[in-house]
């Protein structure tokens, strides 16, 4: 078993409030880890810790260690920009930058200094295909990213991350605002992508976790309650809280 992220005693505070309480968790490489739990359970905070987006918020404090391939990403010598290039994130609401579809996809790559037109063209086609969007937009790559449907926008955001050729992809409730068809397209894409990437999928939709994740972790009020194979979590959870949540008796 190949471990991508090893999270040890991770606590995250925003101001005085604690959002994660000493979480221990391992994320397997080339698998989809689903993270479920009610809102306010610290799922998104966990994602924010994995690519250090949390620290953009004022008054954020992180304790504990996160090892990525054995290297502590919170150490002061670790380059946070490189981390974000290696660990991409797709947010809950699709946010295309106000530029063309093409420029959206190559935004991150251009930042790294790649400007060769041929290389960029290749990347655009490859990333959009992997995100199951190429066929829908290949004739209008110069269209503003704001002018396609919400489902397409979210796949564009995924393609934008894929173009960076990252090692891991974090998804924060990527289909919360989408219709079932768009959702299934994203799920299809994720199923293929796990061959190449480590995927962490936060979702409010337990059925989605059951459908596509290999492992599932249940979070509640900042605590990691239980983690195991998806099959085990959904059929024979060890903790009562988990059972209550997945059977809908929660709250």
């Amino acid at each position: 078993m190949n471990i991508k992220f090893k999270i040890e005693n991770l606590s995250v505070y925003f101001g005085k409030e604690q959002f994660l309480n000493s979480v221990n968790l391992e994320v397997e490489a080339n698998k989809i880890l689903g993270i479920i739990g009610p809102s306010g359970s610290g799922k998104s905070t966990l994602l924010g810790a994995l690519n250090r987006m949390n620290e953009l918020e004022p008054y954020c404090r992180t304790e504990g260690t996160i090892l990525m391939d054995g290297v502590d990403i919170n150490s002061s010598t670790y380059n946070v920009i490189n981390l974000r290039k290696k660990v991409g994130i797709v947010f809950a609401m699709p946010v295309p930058l106000p530029m063309s579809i093409y420029e959206n996809v190559v935004y991150g790559v251009r930042l790294s200094g790649v400007n060769d037109k041929k290389r960029l063209d290749e990347l655009v086609e490859k990333s959009l295909s992997e995100a199951f969007l190429w066929n829908e937009v290949k004739d209008r790559l110069n269209l503003s990213g704001l002018r396609i449907s919400g489902g397409q926008q979210q796949r564009l955001c995924l393609a934008r991350v894929l173009a960076m050729e990252p090692e891991a992809i974090l998804l924060d409730e990527p289909s919360s605002g989408l219709d079932p068809i768009s959702t299934s397209k994203i799920e299809d894409a994720l199923n293929q992508l796990k061959e190449k990437y480590t995927i962490v999928l936060v979702t409010n939709n337990t059925k989605q976790a059951a459908r596509i994740s290999d492992n599932t972790a249940y979070f509640l009020l900042g605590d990691m309650i239980e983690v195991g194979s998806t099959k085990q979590i959904f059929t024979a959870p060890l903790k009562k809280e988990t059972d209550d949540y997945i059977t809908g008796r929660f709250g």
Binding site: M53, F91, V95, Y107, G108, L111, C157, M164
Partner: peptide, 21 residues
């Protein structure tokens, strides 16, 4: 919108790159 900045940072942009682009 702040979300633009967030997206830019998440794609590995530095602060100045985010401002500029």
């Amino acid at each position: 919108p702040n979300s633009y900045r967030k997206v830019s940072f998440s794609l590995g942009a530095s602060r100045w790159q985010t401002v500029k682009k």
